[in-house]
Computed example of a mutant assay.
Amino acid sequence: MLKYHQQFGGIFKMNLGFFKSVQIGDPALLEILLRMETPYPKRMEIKPWKMYREYRGEDYGLLTLDGKYNAHQMMEYLGPLLVTSADLHKQFNTKAWKNHTEAWDYIFSTAKCFIDRRLKSNPAWKNDLLNTITSNYPLTNKQLSGLFTELQIGGVETTANSLLWLLYNLSRHSEVQKKVLDEIQTVLLPGQPPSTDCLQKMPYLKACIKESMRLTPTVPFTSRTIENDTNLGGYLIPGGVIAMINFHSMAWNENYFPDAREYKPERWLKPRTLANSFASTPFGVGKRMCVGRRLAELQLQLTLCWIIQHFYICTTDNEPCKAITSGLMVPTRQLPVSFKKR
């Protein structure tokens, strides 16, 4: 999408089959849009997901309320159903609909299996997330499976993918790894596990994660449904139109980030010089920002700290690794990364 914004500017209209949208790649326009939001802003409806739940009689999770297959494969199958009529795919039982349905069937069956097993497990494990939820809220097993399947997609896949890109970026910059290790050794004693308090004293480690999420964002876009006729950038956007917010295009814009395609964690340690703080928002911003942001950041910080303490992150080849967007931004090949014990 970056090349389209370079050609057409910070806002333009794009029609893909049945999908009509306004594309936003300007942080100033994004700020205006978000400041005009209603108390309950709407994202683009993921209609195929809702249709699957109605088709199978499953419950909704947080995303759909407003093995053989995995969440990554399900996201791959989603694309064709968004830009063409999902109703027609379902009516004619096309291959795209079958793949989408089979992927969700597998995800739901796996979730139900683990939920049932966990609820019947050893009482000593009753302080985990699942049992905390069931102890405080009268949810049925059906509601729990609807919640946890989307938790896997919205939390597990995204955080894991962010970690992959982080390791890839660090494998290409041994000098950055050394700086992270020096910082860790300044804060922690040999063999001491990191704590949240210790992480507050590791700004460079956090900068490495932030820079990776700018350069290779797992979620390169989000959406809003324009609820009322809105003037944005001198254009009148009718109510009901989908606004696609392209994080990746803004984060690779040289106007906001000099040497935008280079991995430079140091840029986040300087006094704030961004022309607009909305230029890099990998977790989104506003009322619909990622609900798991703090948990994801903590997981990445703890994981990176442990890995750097114990391993060198090495690259196995120097060929660039391209990315494709399939719901998430994923590498086109196996990442050329290996670990060498310190």
Rank of each mutant, 00 (worst) to 15 (best):
L164M: 14
K178Y: 07
L147Q: 12
L164A: 15
Q152P: 00
K178R: 10
R172G: 00
V180F: 01
G155S: 03
F148G: 03
W165L: 04
H173M: 09
T158N: 03
S171Y: 02
V176W: 06
L170D: 01
V156G: 06
V176K: 06
L181W: 09
E175A: 12
R172Q: 08
K178I: 11
Y168D: 04
N169P: 02
E175S: 12
V156W: 05
G154D: 13
K178H: 11
H173E: 12
L147M: 12
L147C: 09
G155D: 00
L151T: 06
G155V: 04
N161Q: 05
R172L: 00
V180P: 11
Q177P: 08
K178F: 07
K179R: 13
Q177F: 04
L166T: 13
F148R: 03
E150P: 03
A160N: 08
T159R: 09
T159V: 11
R172C: 00
T159Q: 04
L147H: 09
T149L: 10
T158R: 06
S162P: 01
R172S: 01
L151H: 10
L167N: 00
V176L: 04
K179P: 05
W165D: 05
W165A: 04
T158L: 11
V156R: 12
N161A: 06
E175P: 02
V176R: 07
V176Q: 09
Q177T: 07
K178Q: 13
V176F: 09
L163V: 06
G154P: 03
E175C: 06
W165E: 04
L181F: 14
L151G: 06
A160W: 08
E150T: 08
